[in-house]
Amino acid sequence: MTRLIPPMDELLRIQSLRTVFPGDAGPFAAVDGVDLTLERGRTLGIVGESGSGKSVLSLSIMRLVPPPGRIAGGSIHFAGQDLLTLPEPAVRALRGRRIAMIFQEPMTSLNPAHTVGAQIVEAIAAHERGVPARTLRARAVAALDRVRIPDPDRRFDDYPHQLSGGQRQRVMIAMALACKPDLLIADEPTTALDVTVQAEILALLRSLQAETGMALMLISHDLGLVAGMADTVAVMYAGQVIEHAPAAALFADAQHPYTLGLIASAPQAAAPRGRLLAIEGTVPTPADMPAGCRFEPRCALAEPACRAAPPGLRPFGPDHQAACRRAPVEALVEALVA
């Protein structure tokens, strides 16, 4: 096997990733042929609704796909190594230390029976043998301080229930960053939080990224949130990336009707109390997955040819790709106006 030599700052390269789960209608791919790359210091946003496969994608990178689900194909190169061919102990050494992850619900991710300090200490000690206890405590306090928890020396001895939701998410971030990972995967990190706390946590992630140069993979159903944070955005639908673009390009030149629909579904300042342009219908279930374009049954622009074969991603600008046979949309618009 040839060892991949990555471009200078490329950290993560996912190719043709396929993660399957057994189902009533035979095995189905929750992630079905995903290609993505992420450079050091950059932020990749993954946007999708329930059933899009965005969370299975992140669990695949961590090699934490819950059985009976399994990764059935493709490769995930992290700093030049294929994570999918590494033995489990080597993956465990990377996980937490070089690739860390934070989840939506900090209350279920923290152990209620241990102090937050003890849990951060445990996270550090798991990856670095022989660190003296005093140093461990000092590093945990420093980690709490880094995520702007006031009075970190005293908070070290608090239990999770003594902290607010925002503080618990800060503790989760402190744990994730305690070993200075190269990649942080944040799966809906602010969804359970109030809007003011959400803004604080996002600002914190931004400044920590600037300090440490880590790469960030931000997963959310919220297109507005992702667009404000990410350099590039991948929109997922039914297990596939259907559009991939620099964040700015997405809001200037979205090509896929699903992306356009997502933009239109979010209530905006410009059109108060108007009808939202809803995407009718729902995400297809594994049993009724279309053979052609998976969005076709809900698509306002669909034509018979869309049902014949799946559309691949095609380029529409610098770093901008979309998987739609009907694109570029602008030509359709011109034709309709004429």
Partner: peptide, 9 residues
Amino acid sequence: PEVHPAPTI
């Protein structure tokens, strides 16, 4: 968090 799509969109 606000979304500001361009007029083209």
